[in-house]
């Protein structure tokens, strides 16, 4: 997650700002927009294959956390971009016009006026996307986190593995060892609790700042 948050938030906000404020309306804009919409519909396992090919094999990352994090970042990037775009678009026009009227440059306006005003929306969208990344399993199974677990079949909670991966393995093996089903259930509770907390934070932020503008 330490990889996912900075990568997605920075690239996501950057793309959203570019698409909303800088790009000229026209074919390039619609190409990028269609492209993002299609990316959002690509099955997560295909991202897993991309991660396996590019990050794990081609770039030869020994570091599995980095490869996994980058793959998950690409996966949730479209969600963050769309959320950030909506947030930027919902900033009232007169705020930025007032800022230009005061002689501010475009970047000054974006940094001091638009970004602070759009921040709650961006945060909410990012947190929701993050909770999607936390629960995602399929790309991780493809990337090869399993190999790490094969070395510890007893289910030692390794630093480099993820909650959903544990659930997956324990569920698969629950026909072999009875306790594994219980273990999986317990892990699910932990995972759901985590997601519930994240989503509540997102909803709280949304409710708290909704009336402001």
């Amino acid at each position: 997650m330490a990889v996912v948050i900075p990568v997605t938030v920075i690239i996501g906000i950057g793309t959203a700002l570019y698409l909303e404020l800088y790009i000229k309306r026209g074919s390039i804009q619609s190409i990028i927009q269609t492209n993002i919409a299609n990316l959002a519909g690509v099955p997560s396992i295909v991202y897993g294959i991309l991660g396996l090919t590019v990050f794990v094999r081609a770039m030869d990352f020994g570091n599995i956390v980095l490869a996994g994090g980058l793959t998950l970042s690409l996966l949730i990037l479209p969600i963050v971009i769309v959320a950030a775009q909506e947030a930027v678009r919902s900033v009232p026009q007169h705020l930025s016009e007032a800022s230009y009227g005061m002689g501010a440059t475009k970047w000054q306006t974006i940094r001091r006026i638009i970004l602070p005003a759009a921040l709650p929306g961006i945060l909410t969208g990012s947190i929701l996307a993050l909770s999607r990344a936390i629960g995602e399993t399929a790309p991780l199974t493809v990337i090869g986190i399993p190999a790490l677990l094969m070395a510890h079949p007893g289910g030692i909670f390794d630093k480099f593995t993820a909650l959903p991966m544990q659930i997956y393995y324990w569920t698969l093996d629950s026909s072999l060892v009875d306790e594994y089903a219980n273990l999986a259930a317990a892990t699910i509770i932990v995972l759901l609790l985590l997601l519930f907390i994240l989503n509540s934070v997102a909803v709280l932020i949304r409710n708290k700042f909704q009336q402001r503008l």
């Binding site: 629960g135 995602e136 659930i167 997956y168 259930a185 997601l195």
Partner: peptide, 9 residues
């Protein structure tokens, strides 16, 4: 928002 692995379980 429930992860799919949970649905699998």
């Amino acid at each position: 928002g429930i992860p799919t692995v949970v649905y699998g379980f």
